[in-house]
Structures are given as C-alpha cells and as structure tokens.
Amino acid sequence: MPKAEGGIPPTKAITNMANRPQPSFPEPDTQHFWDGCKAGELRYQTDSDGNVVFYPRGHSTVTGDRELSWNVSSGLGSVYTYSVVRQNRMPGFQELGAYAVAYIDLDEGFRMMSTIVGVDDPTSDIHIGQRVKVEFEEQAGEDSYPIPVFRPV
C-alpha cells in the first residue's frame, strides 16, 4: 500500500476559507480519517480482499467483513465531475463568491467530494479529467481539523 512519508504539510490561505463546517464527533466511522488530516495524511480503507472502502466505515461494502486496513493515499487524482456554486445561502459560503465542488477520483480507486483551489476562475479553469493533488486547508479555531482540498498539478 502507498505510504506518504511524514505526511503532507498544511497550507494556508488558498481559498480564503478558514471557516468551513467542521466534522462532528463522536462519529466512529470517520474519526480516523479526520485524525489523518491533522497528520497530513489522506487515509482510506481496504478490506482483506483488497477492495477499497470509502467513505470510511466499520465494514467492507463488498463482503461485510469488519476487518479493514487503513492506508495513506498519494493524494493524487483526477476530477471526475464538478460544479461551480454561484448561490448558497449558508453563512460562510454565501460570501465566498463562485466556488467549485467536485468529485475527485483518487489514483488508489476511491472517489471523494471536495473542492478545487488555486484557480483564478473556477468557471473556466477547471475541467473533467484534470489532474489534482490534495492539500490540507487550515481552519480557524483551536484544535480544528484541516480540510482536504485539491489543487491542479
């Protein structure tokens, strides 16, 4: 399994959004994933047959087996699809201007929702199939969880 060495260092001020909704705990399925984000690791699970399990869960979605292994992704993937949100009445996002949401297909075979950062204009600078790499966006507040976001590479 791929293993990042020492994790990926956190970055700051890439979308000017440090007030994203935080994950809520206790939530046993996703705790280890989010602990990984603090360690600069994008973590995913596999079952004993090698099937990728994601989003994180306590069982294999292929076999029901509860013996799962945690792995660290290279953080590299491709944009499967995306949209640029022009209107969201939720505080925080409401003031953000146009921003992207996307499904990213990671090279290890799992798909996650995220956002694309580091583009001048999300309406024109993002395309399906674009190669991207994970970053961990620091969040305001003490002991907050950095949020995994993706930047074109």
């Binding site: 206790p26 939530e27 399925d29 996703t30 994180p56 949209s83 925080g92 956002t115 949020i147």
Partner: peptide, 16 residues
C-alpha cells in the same frame, strides 16, 4: 454527526 455529513459538509455543496 454522521458518516456522510462529516465527509461532505465542509465543501459547501448544494442540492442544485
């Protein structure tokens, strides 16, 4: 807290 909400809420997706 839910397994899915925890994975998607940070990104500000909307139904549309």
């Amino acid at each position: 807290a839910s397994w899915q909400q925890n994975m998607e809420a940070p990104y500000g997706s909307t139904l549309i």
